[in-house]
């Protein structure tokens, strides 16, 4: 079974996600909700809830001998588990607030000599970076690390700037 789990491929892994699984390694057995499988190393992230705390176990892909599905998860459990790891809750803005935020972010970036264009709800930067609503530094996505870092820093500075103005 060596390499069996690694050979399964991303689509089969995705089908195991958010379900309760049992993972066998050479000496041990791990059980828990499968949060994710790293597509690079095939490592599994298992979560167990113990008295409102989450215990997370990562089993390295090379050590996995067997993976067994135990139980299908309800969607709620998955989200509940996710909230332990995601400290920034998705922020909800209405359409008007979103537009105002988008305009503010665009003008801030332009002020900093960054070329931006608005494409529907998204903000595109130089054709290589996309900022989705609600336009925080966590909402940026780009495959260029350098540009990503710069724009995220600018957005963070903008957030701090806005917060400082609010408290005045």
């Amino acid at each position: 079974m060596q390499g069996g789990w690694r050979a399964c491929g991303p689509r089969l892994w995705l089908r195991h996600v958010d379900k309760r699984v049992k993972v066998k390694t050479r000496r041990q057995e791990h059980r828990g909700w499968l949060l994710s499988v790293d597509p690079v190393s095939a490592s599994l992230v298992l979560v167990n809830l113990v008295e409102s705390r989450a215990s997370v176990c990562v089993v390295m892909g090379h050590a996995v001998e067997e993976v067994e599905l135990l139980q299908d998860g309800g969607g709620e459990t998955g989200e509940h588990i996710w909230s332990f790891l995601n400290p920034t809750p998705p922020c909800s803005l209405d359409a008007k607030q979103t537009r105002r935020k988008r305009v503010a972010v665009c003008s801030w970036l332009r002020k900093n000599r960054i070329p931006v264009e608005e494409v529907e709800e998204e903000v595109r930067v130089a054709g290589v970076l996309t900022i989705k609503a609600p336009y925080r530094s966590e909402d940026c996505s780009s495959s260029n690390q350098v540009i990503l870092d710069r724009v995220q820093r600018l957005l963070r500075a903008h957030q701090e700037h806005a917060e400082a103005q609010d408290s005045d």
Partner: peptide, 10 residues
């Protein structure tokens, strides 16, 4: 390669 698994409390 030397690690089988690791755990932490969130």
């Amino acid at each position: 390669q030397d690690v089988i698994s690791f755990t932490f409390d969130a």
